[in-house]
Nucleic acid binder design. Sequence first.
DNA 1: TAGGTAAATGAAAATTCTTTTCAATTCCAA
DNA 2: TTGGAATTGAAAAGAATTTTCATTTACCTA
Lengths: 146, 146
Amino acid sequence: MRLTEKKITAMLRQRGYKLTPQRQAVLNVIALSHDHLTPASLYERVHQEHPGIGLVTIYRTLAILAELGLICEMHAGGNCRSYLLRRPSGHHHHLICSQCGGVVDFTDCDLGELEKRLSAETGFDIEGHLLEFSGLCPSCQRTASA
Amino acid sequence: MRLTEKKITAMLRQRGYKLTPQRQAVLNVIALSHDHLTPASLYERVHQEHPGIGLVTIYRTLAILAELGLICEMHAGGNCRSYLLRRPSGHHHHLICSQCGGVVDFTDCDLGELEKRLSAETGFDIEGHLLEFSGLCPSCQRTASA
DNA sequence: TAGGTAAATGAAAATTCTTTTCAATTCCAA
DNA sequence: TTGGAATTGAAAAGAATTTTCATTTACCTA
């Protein structure tokens, strides 16, 4: 079950956030995109449909969505921040190319055992995790060796 | 085999880079540190031993070391960039309390299999990874339930 | 060991990216 | 409808990083 724009707007209202046209435009772009979106690239896309929207609003909307856990915030090389609609599995991991910043996603990480052990050892009530691998993507490997 | 300051300086000279006192000071701090260092925190530490060094020099030295693959550049939440001496194991992990920000480190994570699989599936040359668990530390659990 | 030269340095300015401030506008529950 | 709190955009502020440039320095060569 993928989060749709409709479901997201419902969650927003439930939490007391207002449903402005600007937010709808942002949500629309996020919901339809399968890519990682930086604030700037989101702005660019939203701006086409909805000129006059401010970059500030993009930042603010992203902050709300991240706070509600509806999107994942991630950090990669170069232009640091990017966001992606949250996937069904609940977790969401990345393989990031340290050269070009390209991102590949994967979801199965099998950290349950480790989580259990850490929880027992430290007493932490573990809520989630972030796993990122970094390295060189095939294309940048070729560039590097050339 | 851990990279020592000596080995790093040797590699620098080999590549035609000069060995300035500033660079030595930066290398010294990096080589002795087990933490992730942001440019700012590195600067702070180096500055104690070597006042007068500029933050610019920190950035430049980090760029060279990353280019030579002697340190790993990582991007995590908050203050985006951080660097870590490249370790044999390539590992460094945290358990972070989402309430008080307390951090517990752990090193054994057993991700070798996953790394191998991802590498085979994606063609990435994987250099390192970042694994962070988040949750509530014992003390904050008590506070929360109180 | 002195001298020349390319590389490195620090300060300041310039860029980017992000957040804050604030007055005007807009959503929406009553 | 209407009141009031939330939201908006513009501009200013702030933070992080990079560029520029004149000066200094490491280190190769003679």
